[in-house]
């Protein structure tokens, strides 16, 4: 395992939709919320000229020689409450954290980067407990994540903390303030980091180079063999195995597109690719249908969650009233 080091981040990057989705979660929640941040840390290739001395192996803490690291937040989970994986003293509760991590489908290039806290009508400074949680999370070496593109394998602690707050004085215009911090183990303090919002457009072309999809298309073994006469004899015996495989592939494809036959994938490659455009358009259309049906499910699920939450709130309110008698 690579050594965990306290390297300074240059900035924290987050895609516009991810940030918007976090803000949406925050503003639609009944109270304060927190959650975990996922993503990756990349070492930016330095724009070195040939005559620049190669000194990246010297002291990593000095700013001039330190590698330029960018933490990119690609996703998050928000259990819709506070104290979701830590206690009131700010100590991380490992079983709760593991439960959250397991619930989050671990995908390609997604590591735990840190956590976030979103609180209504409070100052946009880290609180007593938030500092403690971040320090505790950063100290768990098993959670450290590898720095990608690094010259030598090096790990970084999940040291990112994203703070959301709304102004104490209510305003006519909804304002959401956000700040990113890196917890530095060497100095035991928060370093404020700039937040880079990645959007689509020419200004962000550089990001396309290091882009990797969060939900990649499933790996399906496309059967390139044409059903020629040569295979006809064998087709009987292997048909059962084949059928099972096709069914599996179909299941996986159904996760992405609704009602698109696996067999149709064959049309996208090989000599049948002449109808490429129409086939691809069909696939995209089916994908959109899938997204729509998912959205409907989410909507009805949300309605149920909302119902339960308001029921719980009423119960809590009752307990709260009864508590002082």
């Amino acid at each position: 395992m690579a050594a965990m080091r306290d390297l300074p981040l240059q900035k924290v990057a987050i895609s516009g939709p991810t940030l918007a989705s976090m803000l949406q979660r925050f503003s639609s929640s009944v109270g304060d919320v927190d959650g975990l941040l996922f993503g990756h840390v990349t070492h930016l290739a330095p724009t070195l000229t040939d005559d620049a001395p190669h000194t990246s192996n010297s002291d990593p803490s000095s700013s001039s020689d330190s590698p330029e690291l960018v933490a990119t937040i690609t996703s998050f989970i928000c259990p819709n409450s506070v104290l979701s994986f830590y206690d009131a003293f700010g100590l991380v509760d490992t079983p709760s954290l593991q439960r959250l991590l397991v619930a989050h489908p671990g995908r390609h290039r997604q590591h735990l980067l840190g956590w976030f806290s979103a609180r209504r009508r409070t100052s946009n400074r880290p609180s007593m407990r938030e500092f403690s949680v971040t320090r505790c999370l950063s100290s768990i070496s098993e959670l450290s994540l590898p720095v990608e593109n690094a010259e030598s394998p090096v790990n970084l602690a999940p040291c990112v903390f994203l703070l959301f707050a709304t102004p104490v004085q209510e305003q006519l215009i909804h304002t959401h303030e956000y700040r990113a911090y890196q917890f530095r183990d060497s100095t035991e303090c928060f370093d404020s980091k700039s937040v880079d919002i990645v959007n689509i457009g020419p200004a962000f072309r550089g990001h396309y180079g290091s882009f990797s999809p969060n939900s990649p298309f499933p790996m399906l073994s496309c059967d390139l063999r044409s059903s020629s006469a040569m295979n006809e004899d064998r087709s009987e015996e292997i048909s059962l195995v084949e059928l099972k495989k096709v069914a599996n592939d179909q299941k996986e494809l159904d996760m992405c597109a609704e009602g698109y036959g696996v067999a149709n994938l064959n049309r996208l490659i090989g000599h049948e690719a002449t109808s490429y455009t129409a086939g691809l358009e069909d696939l995209y259309e089916k994908m959109l249908v899938k997204i729509q049906s998912l959205a409907r499910e989410v909507e009805s699920g949300n309605a149920k969650v909302h119902q339960l939450e308001s029921h719980n709130r009423k119960l809590r309110y009752k307990v709260g009233k009864g508590g002082v008698e």
Binding site: S127, S132, R316, G320
Partner: peptide, 24 residues
């Protein structure tokens, strides 16, 4: 505090000039 969870202990935010005060 959190009115949604009045049973939970509160958190404290100290003044901006005391940003190095970390009692926990």
């Amino acid at each position: 505090y959190n009115a949604e969870l009045p049973m939970a202990p509160p958190d404290v935010i100290f003044a901006a000039e005391d940003e190095d005060f970390h009692p926990l």
